[in-house]
Design a protein around this nucleic acid. Structure first.
Lengths: 229, 229
DNA sequence: AAATGTATTATTGTATACAATGATACACAA
DNA sequence: TTGTGTATCATTGTATACAATAATACATTT
C-alpha cells in the first residue's frame, strides 16, 4: 500500500496476492464483467487513485492484460479496453469444444482419487443449488468443476488456456444459467462426463465433454448470443 | 533509453517497439531458445544492467512472462525461469492438432485473395530453400506460413493462441528441420493445405492441417523429443 | 558441534520524480 | 471561415528513491 494506506481493494481481497496481483484481478474482472466497456480509455493516474495505489502496480497490471489481448496499448498514447467481443465468444466456444474434449480425455487417464471425490462433491452440491435456483452459487460451482477438471488433465498448458477461456466467457455463462432447465441439464452433463472419467473411458469422456460444449453453444444461440455481450 | 544511452538492444531491434517491448522480446527469446534455463533466477537489477535499462521495463516484461507461464514469480523473492518443458511441448502439439485444423477450416471460408497469394509465394519460396538446405530460412518461412494462416482464420483468439504455441515449440521445430527429407515433406503438406483452402473445402483443410501436426509429432518422436528440449 | 537469535546484506515492492511524447486550445494569417 | 503555428496541458515512459521482505553470515548459548 502507499503512504496513504487507503486502498479500497485491500479490504475486500485477501493478502495472498501482491498489490499488483490484486489490481490486476480488479481491473480484469471489471473488463470481463463489462463494467469497463470496449474502447474505454484506461488512464493510469485515474485507475491508480481510484484504487488507492500508485501508477506502478497499475502499469504492470495493464501490461499483463495487454499480453492477454484484453487491453490495447498504443505507445505514448495510452491503454484502452478491448475485452471479449461476441465474435471472440463464438471462437472461444469452437476452441473449447475441442479442448474440453481433450482435457476430459486426459483426465480419464490421469485423474486421482482426491480429484474424483472433489468432482463428485461439486456435482452433488450443484444438484442442491439447482433445486434452490441459486444462480450465483451455480456459477461458482461450474467454475470449480471445470477448474478441477483442468487440474486433473495433468497438462499445465491445457489448464492455462482453458482457465482463461472459461473466465473470458463469464458473461454468457451467467446468462445461460438464466435459461429455464439449463442448469439442471448442464449438471447432468457434468455428471455424465464424471462417470466416463471414473470408468477411465477416454473416448467417452472426450465425446461427452465435446457435446457438453456444443449443447452450451446451442443454448446460448437460442437466447441470442449478441444480447449477452 | 536511460541517461547513459548505452542500450545493447536498441542497436539490434527496430524502434517500432517500446523499450519494455524490446526487453520483453529479448528475455522471452532467451527463455524459448534455452539460453535461460529452467530454474535460473532472473534478478531484475542484473537483467537491467545487462540490457542497459532501468528496472522498470524489466519488471514489466517479467510480469508479462509470468502471465504466460514462462516465468514463475514468488512475491518478495523473485523471478525464475519456467520455460517450456518436454511435457509442455507434447501437450502443445496435442492442442495444435485440433486447433490448426480448426484454423485451416476457418481460413477455407474466410481467406482473401491477398492472403492466398502470400501463402502461395511462401510455399514457392520454401521449395527453393528446401533444395538449398537453408535451414534458417526454412524456419523463418514456416513462421510466415503459419502466421498468414492464423490471420486468415479471421479469429483473433485462435490467432493469439496458435501464435504463442508456435513460438513455444521453436526448439523442436528447428530440430525437426534437421531430419532428412522432413523439410521437403512439410512443404508438400503446406501446399496440400493451401490447395484445400483455395478450393474452399473446409473439411479437407481441417483434416490436412490436423494430419500435418500429427506427422510433425511423429517426426519429432522418431528423433526423440527429449533430446531437443 | 548444533541450534537459535541477531545484524547485515541483497532483492523485490511501491511510490515518485523527471523527461518525452502527444493532445488541445487559441491566436493569427490567408 | 479555414488553416496553421505555437503555447500549454495531460499522459505516458523511464529512472530512481525508499520501504518492506527475505536470505545470509555470524555470534551466542546449550
Amino acid at each position: 500500500m502507499g503512504k496513504k494506506g487507503e486502498s479500497k481493494i485491500n479490504q475486500e481481497v485477501s493478502d495472498k496476492y501482491s498489490l499488483r496481483g490484486r489490481v490486476f484481478q480488479v481491473i480484469r474482472e471489471k473488463i470481463l464483467s463489462g463494467e469497463y466497456k470496449h474502447g474505454e480509455e484506461l488512464k493510469e493516474t485515474a485507475l491508480a487513485s481510484e484504487l488507492g495505489v500508485s501508477r506502478t502496480p497499475v502499469r504492470e497490471a495493464l501490461r499483463q492484460m495487454e499480453l492477454e489481448g484484453l487491453v490495447k496499448i498504443i505507445p505514448n498514447k495510452g491503454a484502452s479496453v478491448i475485452g471479449i467481443t461476441a465474435e471472440d465468444m463464438e471462437d472461444i466456444y469452437s476452441m473449447r469444444s475441442l479442448l474440453e474434449g481433450l482435457c476430459a480425455g486426459f483426465a480419464a487417464e490421469r485423474i486421482n482419487e482426491e480429484q474424483l471425490d472433489k468432482l463428485e462433491e461439486i456435482a452433488y452440491l450443484t444438484d442442491f443449488h439447482v433445486k434452490k435456483g441459486n444462480l450465483e452459487k451455480l456459477y461458482e460451482l461450474d467454475n470449480q468443476f471445470h477448474e478441477v477438471m483442468y487440474e486433473a488433465s495433468g497438462s499445465r498448458m491445457l489448464k492455462h488456456v482453458l482457465s482463461d477461456f472459461h473466465h473470458y466467457v463469464e458473461r454468457v455463462r451467467k446468462a445461460s444459467l438464466l435459461s429455464p432447465g439449463r442448469s439442471q441439464m448442464f449438471n447432468e452433463e457434468h455428471k455424465a462426463i464424471l462417470e466416463a472419467i471414473r470408468e477411465k473411458d477416454r473416448g467417452k469422456a472426450e465425446r461427452l465433454a465435446n457435446a457438453h460444449m456444443k449443447n452450451t453453444i446451442a443454448n446460448i444461440s437460442e437466447q441470442g448470443l449478441e444480447k449477452n455481450v
